[in-house]
Amino acid sequence: MKFSKLFILFIVIIASNKLGAQENSSKAIYPVLGKNDTIRVTATNDNGYMIPWFPLKEVVIIGVRTFKSAADQAAFNRLRYNVLKVMPYALYAKRRYEQLERDLAVTTDKKTQKRLVKQCDDEIKKMFNTEIKELTITQGQILTKLINREVGRTTYDIVKETKGGFAAFSYQLIARVVGHNLKSTYSATEDRDIETIIVNSGYYQ
């Protein structure tokens, strides 16, 4: 009896393997190509039928904004001008600090790390002395927000990490005198007008 059960089980296994082999050996059905179908695309086997497909880029649909008054539109235009004015500086800061973090990650020598931090600090300071110092108070406030948006940390935190707590405190005191706040953070919800301008700016296309 046991032998007969094992024999039947053996037959079932062989039959299932043959059935699977027949299913796998069956030819997939491809769509009929036309004379203009010359682009190679990915295809997915859907129950024997090959369904061609290709990925599409994300499409962001933004409605045309209407303003309640000419003054509101003028204010938005000024904001747009200021955002586009300082956005390159925020992106530069992002790239430069990302490079600094990569450089610091590959060395444990304190002297080398100190030199790398100073080099980065000198480059940022040079940019401030030549261009950023000409920014208006409003543009400076927007810049601190955008640095937080791009780098993921406030300007105060960046100074504290690279120069120390006392330097960050000193810079914050100076910034507050001229109407800035190095601890300003960015919120895509609260700063939705700025976010809309950035999304439509073309920087991330």
Rank of each mutant, 00 (worst) to 15 (best):
E161M: 13
G165N: 15
R153N: 08
A167K: 12
I174T: 13
T154M: 01
V177W: 02
T138K: 12
G164N: 09
R176T: 05
G165I: 14
I132M: 14
T138D: 14
N148T: 04
F169R: 11
D157H: 07
Y171I: 08
K160A: 15
F166D: 11
V178T: 14
T154F: 00
A175N: 12
L135W: 05
I174H: 01
V159T: 12
I147C: 09
S170N: 04
G152H: 02
E150V: 10
G140Y: 11
I147S: 07
Y156P: 09
Q141N: 15
R149Y: 04
E131Y: 07
N148W: 00
A168Y: 02
I142R: 13
R149C: 04
G165M: 13
T154Q: 01
I158Q: 01
Q172I: 02
R153W: 09
I174D: 09
D157L: 02
I142S: 08
E131W: 05
E134Q: 08
Y156L: 05
D157R: 12
Q139A: 14
R149Q: 06
K160G: 07
G152I: 03
I147F: 06
E134L: 09
Q172W: 04
I132K: 14
E134F: 09
T144V: 07
E161A: 15
T155I: 01
I147N: 02
K163Q: 12
Q141G: 15
T136R: 08
L146C: 08
N148H: 08
T162P: 05
Y171R: 13
Q141P: 10
I132P: 10
T155K: 02
F169D: 14
T136C: 07
L143D: 10
Q141L: 08
Y156F: 05
G140H: 12
T162D: 01
N148I: 00
E161I: 11
K145E: 02
E131D: 14
Y171D: 14
I137V: 15
E134R: 09
E150S: 10
R149L: 04
V159D: 01
E150G: 04
E134C: 03
I132W: 06
E161P: 09
V177Y: 11
E134N: 06
I174G: 10
K133S: 11
R153V: 02
Y171P: 10
E131H: 11
V151P: 00
G164Y: 12
A168C: 10
E131C: 04
L173T: 01
V177I: 15
I174F: 04
Q141S: 14
E134I: 00
I158N: 04
V159S: 06
T136D: 08
K163I: 00
L146I: 15
L143Q: 12
L143M: 13
L146D: 05
L173A: 04
G152V: 06
F169K: 14
N148A: 08
I142H: 08
V151R: 00
L173S: 01
T144A: 11
I142D: 07
F166I: 11
I142C: 10
L135V: 06
L135I: 06
N148K: 05
I158G: 03
G140A: 14
R176Y: 00
T136W: 03
T138I: 14
G164S: 09
V151Y: 03
T138R: 11
R176N: 15
